[in-house]
């Protein structure tokens, strides 16, 4: 099978709000026309501030949230058009790791039940060898085998996150959405989980969509980054160029917002003020223009197309060529 493992084309997720029998209500455009591809073994970072649609995008790829439009293909198979039986089969290939390890494990089920259910649902292994598989899975994520007979509340946040990862791995997926898997953890634990994900990618050839807002974690773990703002892709590039030579003012603002250990050095920064606009009524044209220091009248007229400015580096900004953002 040649071609990318995962293809996303023009994905849209809209939510109707305030609709009643008598009035039509409005539409939240959580994800608007997002396209990207992901190779086998590749880690794509998804960044953007709160409310930019990162989580919704991740979930709509797995159809945990139904996309309103667009196509998702996994290994050539159309995920968006899959019927219930096909979708069930796809669930063993596409998995998810959640942000909050305290909410993502059923408190009434032992670890053995949690992992065993996943194996059972996809008929992995016979009844007899599931015990051995569960032990192997736990060891794979760095937990001892006897953890199987414990309940989630007996574990720390980092350990719970490992159980969540084991659950995602149990069905042998090729692609995992990691929805801010370290945001709820202590910094010291974050490094362990990030390293675990990195090892798994290397050893199992997993592809990851890593959602996060810690840019240093993204830089360490990911091959490529997708910058999302109000549900739209602002910029996508390999990690190196994106960090050294961002082309979109929003990417630059995100990078500038991260603290840098540079004693004495005064930086020229783009500082965003205010909140992300409401996705109920996004600005016309470029959605970022209301907070962009380089905005001009033309930005309000049409949605800027994502265009390639360097190999593998695309940006959706009218002025990408004239403004220089690299000087930092």
């Amino acid at each position: 099978m040649s071609g990318p493992l995962l293809e996303v084309e023009g994905l849209k997720v809209h939510f109707p709000v305030g609709k009643t029998l008598w009035k039509p209500g409005a539409t939240v455009r959580a994800v608007e026309d997002v396209s990207f591809t992901l190779e086998k073994g590749e880690v794509l970072g998804l960044v953007g501030e709160s409310g930019s649609g990162k989580t919704t995008l991740g979930r709509s790829i797995l159809r945990l949230v139904e996309p309103t439009g667009g196509v998702v293909r996994y290994d050539g198979q159309d995920v968006t058009a899959a019927g219930p039986a096909e979708l069930r089969a796809l669930r063993s290939k596409m998995q998810i790791i959640f942000q909050d390890p305290y909410a993502s494990l059923n408190p009434r089920m032992s670890v053995r039940d949690i992992l065993g259910e996943a194996l059972m649902l996809h008929g992995v292994g016979s009844r007899a060898d599931r015990g051995a598989r569960i032990t192997a899975l736990l060891e794979r994520v760095g937990l001892p085998g006897w953890a199987a007979d414990r309940f989630p509340h007996e574990f720390s946040g980092g350990q719970r996150q490992r159980i969540g990862i084991a659950r995602a791995l149990s069905v042998g997926p090729g692609f995992i959405v990691a929805d801010e898997p370290v945001s709820a953890l202590d910094v010291s634990i974050q490094a362990q989980i990030v390293n675990l994900l990195s090892d798994l990618r290397r050893d199992l050839g997993l592809s990851l969509l890593f959602i996060g807002h810690d840019l240093s974690v993204i830089e360490y773990l990911c091959n490529r980054v997708l910058v999302l703002y109000l549900g739209r892709v602002m910029e996508t590039a390999p990690v190196g160029p994106l960090y050294t030579r961002p082309r979109h003012p929003y990417t630059r603002a995100l990078l500038d917002a991260a603290p840098v250990a540079a004693p004495g050095g005064q930086r020229e920064r783009i500082v965003l003020t205010g909140d992300i606009p409401s996705p109920l009524a996004p600005p016309s044209g470029c959605v970022f223009r209301t907070r962009c220091p380089f905005a001009m009248p033309a930005c309000a007229e049409a949605v800027p197309a994502l265009r390639e400015v360097a190999p593998g580096h695309s940006v959706a900004c009218l002025r990408a060529d004239e403004i220089d953002l690299a000087s930092r």
Partner: peptide
């Protein structure tokens, strides 16, 4: 999230409700 996790694993309505 644990219900969503079960849904992501392909659990059906009855399993989600009862289990």
């Amino acid at each position: 999230e644990y219900v969503e996790a079960a849904r992501a694993l392909g659990a059906g309505g009855a399993r989600l409700m009862f289990r």
